[in-house]
Nucleic acid binder design. Structure first.
Length: 394
DNA sequence: TCTGGGGTCCTAGGACCC
DNA sequence: TCTGGGGTCCTAGGACCC
């Protein structure tokens, strides 16, 4: 989806169309009283001058989305608000409305599934779609179906998206970036050399800042340069798995299927404090936040019908260094008190002399609640008496 | 006054088992 | 100058993605 969070806000406030708008930050900077006094239809009449600006922003937020007008100024997702304010002080700032975003996320995915049922979720604003067996999916290299999807999504949500069509997920993802916003891009196998090889290695989904820097240090900047390396050379520098994967990726090879169903592995809640907290001096405040996080994770688990048995904490010190501690229970749980107690033990194993900026709680090793053995029967499977090792040998 | 929140996957070492 | 070779599970950190 194109500038998803921002585009959703523009539906509400069409008077902001064409202006630099950024979405993000924890605190709501729009004048709540003003907005709540209006009904939905009246929102479009709020004067542009009444919206809050980046230069007035206070806090530790980052930008989740910037409109294309804002991107002109060099601001973009993951950038700190304070830094963005220096680049574009007059950009309008709006908070993320998660309920609204989830609503539109469901809506656009539903619109797609009505046309093409094989859809893989890739987060809130992105999917992979297997066109292969959809009627008309092969027509015009896939362009007809892509157009149909764009039309259907626009009708049902008022939002635009960009689509890349290719023989596999790796290339389709890259192709989807070629023609933004509201674009379609078709990449065939034979286009590898002309369309993919000139691109920076960083454009490969899976090559992040670290790998990119390492490649650059080896004087490899484009995907074509990567493809020109011997696979053995890549393995020597990046390890067996990564090296072989890089070589495949550079040659456009990817056999991963579109996966329509998956189970969650973990659920977590974390929060960055408005100011750094000290474990001793701010003990009460920290304790309250900690308990609240545990309650929220427990709620999430229960609402979604999962239990877990690995309880972990994460904290980030004022110097931005993070540590994690976790502990696996003998039984599965979704209980706030159990999570709080176990997480408390984990927290005790971590040095707390430095100030903290973030605290998080995580529950992993998840299982569908209905699949978890009842506590009474846990581990009650009759076991064979263990055979001595030598007995097995002879 | 730098740097959110919610995820997945990988690696590597150690414990433990047969 | 001895001390194998699988496996699995747990833990901590880190890269990466949306």
């Amino acid at each position: 989806m194109d500038a998803f969070f921002a585009s959703i806000e523009l539906l509400r406030y069409p008077q902001l169309k064409g202006l630099p708008v950024v979405i993000g930050g924890g605190r709501r900077r729009v004048d709540d009283a003003l907005l709540q006094a209006q009904d939905e239809r009246a929102l479009r009449f709020i004067p542009v001058d009444d919206f809050p600006r980046l230069k007035d922003y206070v806090g530790r937020g980052v930008i989740t989305t910037a409109t294309y007008a804002a991107r002109q100024f060099g601001v973009g997702s993951a950038m700190g608000m304070m830094k963005a304010a220096k680049l574009c002080p007059d950009a309008i700032v709006l908070p993320v409305d998660f309920d609204e975003v989830r609503k539109y996320s469901r809506a656009f995915k539903e619109a797609i599934r009505e046309v093409a049922p094989l859809v893989e979720d890739r987060g809130i604003d992105e999917v992979y779609i297997d066109f292969t067996d959809v009627p008309g999916g092969q027509r015009d290299g896939g362009r007809s179906l892509a157009r149909l999807l764009q039309r259907s999504i626009l009708e049902k949500t008022g939002l635009t998206c960009s689509i890349g069509v290719a023989p596999n997920k790796l290339i389709a993802k890259m192709a989807s970036e070629f023609n933004k916003p509201n674009g379609i891009s078709i990449v065939q196998e034979t286009d590898l050399q002309s369309m993919i090889w000139p691109l920076a290695c960083r454009k490969i989904n899976g090559i992040g800042p670290k790998s990119d820097a390492k490649l650059a240090a080896l004087n490899i900047h484009t995907i074509g340069e990567m493809a020109a390396q011997e696979i053995g050379w890549l393995i020597d520098h990046f390890g067996q798995a990564t090296g072989a994967w890089m070589h495949d990726a550079a040659w456009g090879r990817d056999t991963r299927p579109v996966v329509t169903e998956s189970e969650p592995v973990s659920m977590s809640r974390e929060t960055t404090f408005e100011r750094d907290l000290h474990a001793v001096r701010d003990k009460a405040e920290l304790g309250a936040v900690f308990t609240r996080l545990c309650e929220k994770v427990a709620e999430d688990l229960q609402r979604k019908g999962y239990v877990g048995k690995t309880i972990g904490i994460k904290l980030r010190y004022d110097n931005f260094q993070s540590v994690t501690r976790e502990q696996t229970l003998t039984h599965y749980t979704a209980d706030a008190t159990t999570i709080r107690q176990t997480a408390g033990l984990a927290l005790k194993r971590v040095p707390l002399t430095q100030k903290l900026r973030l605290l998080g709680v995580r529950v992993g090793a998840l299982l569908k609640a209905e699949d978890a053995t009842l506590p009474a029967s846990t581990g009650q499977v009759a076991e064979e008496p263990a055979q001595p090792f030598m007995d097995q040998l002879f």
